[in-house]
Amino acid sequence: MELLVNGARHQVDASPDRTLLTVLRDELDLTGTKYGCGEGQCGACTVLIAGLPARACQTRAAAINGKAITTIEGLAKNGRLHPLQEAFLDQQAMQCGYCTPGMILSGVALLAKTANPSREEIIGAMQGNVCRCGTYPRIIAAIEAAGRRMKGAAA
C-alpha cells in the first residue's frame, strides 16, 4: 500500500498486524517517532494524520487510507523550524529529549486548533504525553510562546 508521509509517497508493506509506528520506524527509517509504551499511554509516538494528533503505536498502517501523515522529520520547512520547535529550543523544554517529538506534534495539533491556548487548554491537550524528566513547565511555556508568536505572525 501507499503512505503519504511528510509530503512524499512511499510504497510500504502493510500487513494487517503492522502499526504505523513500526512501518515509520522500521521501513521508512523515520525514527523521530518514538516507542515509549506501545499502549497509547505516553504520547512519544504522536504523529499528525490529516492534521490531527494520533498515537502511531495504536494506529494500523492499513487503516490510514491515503491521509497525509506528518512526523517530526517533516515539521521544519526548507530547514526552517516550526515556531514550536524554535520555542522548545528557546525555553530549553527538553532534557533527555526522548519525549520531545511527540510533545511537539501534540503541541502543533493544539496550536492548529486553538490559537493562543490557555494554560488549562494546554494541560488538557497534553495530558496524554509523558515527560519523565519533568520538563512540563518548560513545555507549557514553549507552547504559550509559540502560540503568541504564531498569532502575531497571522495578524
Binding site: 523515520l30 517517532t33 522529520e73 520547535q85 529550543l89
Partner: peptide, 17 residues
C-alpha cells in the same frame, strides 16, 4: 543544549532508533 536542534527535529538517534 548543544545538540538541541537534533532533538527537536527528531534527528538524534537513541539506541532504540
Amino acid at each position: 543544549k548543544v545538540n538541541g536542534r537534533a532533538i527537536v527535529t527528531g534527528q538524534h538517534q537513541y539506541t532504540f532508533d
